[in-house]
């Protein structure tokens, strides 16, 4: 391949990528705008709250408790190399609240919720249910997208908070049961070390990751191709996009909160 063709291919790829970003951005703006414009669908919002929030609790809890426990073991083992074993409570707290809690909950939501939203909406599209909604004077963005995005915006920060607490509890359990830490001192060190900014950043990340997860699920579902293969591609694409965007957003938000 000559250099001009190569350059052409590269340019085409970049333009395709930018067009995709543009489409997602317009979709996201449209989705968010429908949250504030009637009609509202409280039943669909309630179902979305249940699916995204309540039913994600087991996977979030299990992820957090194992991560918190493993983190305590790692910090204890790593810290022992330079006589810093005592910092386990502080590092578990800061690690869970600032970083691991929001990111792992975000990724779990991408795996569980984004895939489910994308598959459901893509199947609705393939079976003409989206067209049926339109003919029944119901806007698919209002009926399908807005309730899910709003539910994710509200519930994922709560899930992150719960994940943070369970993760810290996992670290506490391992540290006090296996590593010989004093329970009262562990808790005191954890509480004293955390700052309001840590908690706020955790919740803001949760809200951002929730919105990303829901929008990616809805976008890929609505843009699905035909047939079972189209549904499969939409589901896979939504999880990949949500996971990458969550990690990218985490980097940006960490920079915003902690590089100042």
């Amino acid at each position: 391949m000559n250099p001009i063709s190569l350059l052409g291919e590269l340019g085409r790829a970049i333009l395709t990528m930018l067009a995709a970003f543009g489409r997602v951005a317009l979709f996201a703006l449209d989705a968010v705008s429908h949250i504030f414009r009637p009609p509202f669908y409280p039943r669909e919002f309630g179902i979305a709250l249940l699916n995204i929030g309540w039913l994600s609790l087991p996977v979030v809890g299990l992820t957090a408790i194992f991560t918190g426990g493993a983190l305590a073991l790692q910090i204890y083992a790593g810290g022992a190399r330079f006589n810093a074993e005592a910092v386990v409570p502080q590092i578990v707290a800061i690690g869970m609240v600032r970083e691991l809690g929001p990111v792992l909950v975000g990724l779990m939501i991408a795996a569980r919720v984004t895939s489910s939203i994308a598959a459901e909406i893509a199947t609705m599209k393939v079976t003409e249910q989206i067209d049926a909604l339109v003919t029944l004077s119901t806007h698919p963005m209002k009926y399908l997208t807005a309730p899910r995005v709003l539910a994710a915006l509200l519930t994922v920060p709560v899930l992150v908070a719960i994940g943070d607490i369970i993760g810290i509890a996992g670290g506490y359990t391992v540290a006090t049961q296996n590593l010989g830490f004093n329970p009262a001192a562990y808790l005191k060190n954890t509480v004293n070390f955390l700052e309001l900014r840590d908690i706020v950043s955790s919740l803001v990340k949760g809200a951002a990751f929730g919105v990303i997860a829901a929008i990616m699920g809805c976008y890929y579902g609505m843009s699905s191709g035909r047939g079972a293969q189209g549904v499969g591609r939409a589901t896979k694409g939504s999880v990949e996009a949500a996971a990458v965007l969550i990690l990218a957003a985490n980097f940006v938000l960490t920079g915003v909160f902690f590089s100042l």
Partner: peptide, 8 residues
């Protein structure tokens, strides 16, 4: 609709 398109 052809496939009825009922909401599951």
């Amino acid at each position: 609709f052809q496939g009825a398109a009922l909401f599951d």
